[in-house]
């Protein structure tokens, strides 16, 4: 849950949330639409700079999160680059007795493009999530006129996630203190017991929390005071410049 923690610390938290979401989503769309290495690299750099230099997210944390999907990414790129064939159909082929592992110029290129495209997409997502707490994201969704019940559920889920995380980590510590992790068999039992216990705790809390809502006059709508953060002119201008470069790079 580090992302949430750093989102509150970010120096660009004060930017209008809808504006950040717009930048991230538009970037995502352009990156996957263009699918060009040059564009992807620029996006990685620009989004990284915004997150690290302007937002001041610690680079160690950022780097670790950028590397997290790399394993999945390498494998899926490998699957795109290499194909099987009865004959050596690609430019590079390895015979594995029954068939050939082939890699063609084209599929290699596709895999490399994919690699950078995903990195760019991830960096755009991180720009948003490392600077915008989830409750502000829910408010942006509200502007899109999603059903109220759904949004309310989201708000509550967000709040409850932290409560259950606390409960779970306390249970884990308590289990460890009683050697609940002494061997693998016991560890599995402990894990399941915590899973079961957590569910009961969640239901009990759910009941009390509803009483607490009612006690403050809840009538089926979660209405809260929200603050408007206007988009500043220079932010909009910067955004415009950024998207122009993205589009120009694609034409280049």
């Amino acid at each position: 849950m580090q992302i949430d923690y750093y989102a509150y610390q970010s120096r660009i938290r004060g930017w209008n949330a809808a504006f950040k979401v717009l930048i991230a989503v538009a970037t995502l769309f352009l990156v996957i639409l263009f699918n060009r290495i040059l564009v992807s690299l620029f996006v990685v750099a620009a989004m990284g700079a915004l997150t690290l230099l302007v937002g001041r997210t610690p680079w160690r944390v950022y780097l670790r999160y950028m590397l997290a999907p790399v394993v999945f990414l390498l494998f899926s790129c490998l699957a795109v680059a290499v194909s099987f064939s009865g004959s050596p159909a690609g430019e590079w082929n390895v015979s594995v007795h029954f068939f050939y592992l082939c890699m063609g110029q084209e599929s290699l290129e596709a895999a490399v493009k994919l690699f950078f495209k995903v990195l760019a997409g991830v960096s755009a997502l991180y720009m948003m999530s490392f600077s915008t707490p989830a409750d502000e994201l829910v408010l942006v969704l509200e502007k899109l006129h999603l059903p109220g019940m759904f949004l309310e559920l989201m708000q509550l889920v967000y709040r409850y996630i932290f409560i259950l995380f606390d409960a779970a980590s306390q249970m884990q510590t308590a289990a460890k203190a009683r050697l609940g992790d002494c061997n693998i068999r016991q560890s599995f039992k402990t894990f399941a017991a915590i899973g079961g216990n957590l569910f009961v705790a969640a239901l009990k809390k759910g009941n009390t929390y509803y009483d607490a809502l009612l006690a403050r006059g809840y009538q089926g709508r979660l209405e809260l005071l929200t603050e408007e953060k206007p988009v500043r002119f220079w932010q909009a201008a910067l955004g415009g410049l950024y998207f122009s470069i993205v589009i120009l790079l694609n034409l280049a």
Partner: peptide, 11 residues
Amino acid sequence: AVTILAMAGAY
């Protein structure tokens, strides 16, 4: 059900 379902999601 609203708090119960939200808890279920969080769970």
